[in-house]
């Protein structure tokens, strides 16, 4: 693993693509995202099949709170924008600005997870656990898997902040920051479908 920046001829490339080896790892990370598409596709299929299997109470039309779901959506969309700016500053080698936008992304992501956890705990206190019905099993599995991904992304960003503070911006840390941004945007896309199909779609039933 080379930590140094390559020769002048490659300086025109973005930081995260400066090394060929790191560029290949970015392609590899895209392939991981493709497998994650398949995981979420499976869970969406599950939800589509079981959303109507409510076993009495509750049903999707009354169960979901659209206000918190809209707040979560706006938080995640904003965090997608801030991580985009972080990568833009990373490519300009402006580590301070990049770190600031990454911290903003983290705070937004943590707020998202906090709202989701609060919603889930409220449901559980009302007796609506995933044991209740096939609908709730599918709902908690789909939305919970996404929430777990976001939580993992926050831990990933925290370790990256530590690495950048200790090593500075190198071809390796640049690649890791870039793949984190891909992961984060991808989770935003998955959430948009959860918001549309599960939360808004639940009102249409």
């Amino acid at each position: 693993m080379s930590q140094a920046w390559p020769e002048m001829e490659e300086q025109t490339l973005p930081a995260e693509f400066a090394h060929e080896e790191e560029s290949i790892k970015i392609t590899g990370f895209w392939m991981f995202l493709v497998t994650d598409v398949l995981i979420f596709a499976s869970l969406f299929s599950l939800y589509a099949v079981y959303a109507g299997r409510m076993g009495g109470e509750p049903n999707p039309a009354t169960f979901f709170h659209l206000g918190p779901a809209l707040a979560e959506t706006l938080l995640l969309l904003t965090s997608s924008f801030t991580v985009g700016l972080a990568i833009w500053f990373m490519r300009r080698r402006q580590v301070g600005a990049m770190t600031a936008w990454l911290v903003a992304t983290l705070v937004l992501g943590a707020t998202f997870v906090a709202i989701e956890a609060r919603e889930f705990l409220g449901d559980i206190q009302s007796g609506y656990t995933w044991h209740q019905s096939a609908f709730l099993s599918a709902f908690f599995t789909l939305v919970g898997t996404h929430g777990a991904h976001v939580t993992f992304g926050i831990l990933m960003a925290l370790t990256l902040l530590i690495q950048v503070a200790r090593r500075g911006l190198t071809p390796v840390t640049a690649r890791k920051l870039y793949t984190f941004s891909l992961y984060w945007h991808f989770l935003d896309v998955v959430w948009i479908f959860i918001y549309s199909v599960v939360y808004l779609g639940g009102r249409l039933g």
């Binding site: 995202l33 598409v37 299929s45 099949v49």
Partner: peptide, 16 residues
């Protein structure tokens, strides 16, 4: 890769 992934995803959800 993404094209193939989306093809399978749409097929899986759509056929379900």
């Amino acid at each position: 890769g993404l094209g193939l992934g989306l093809f399978i995803a749409v097929g899986l959800v759509g056929m379900s």
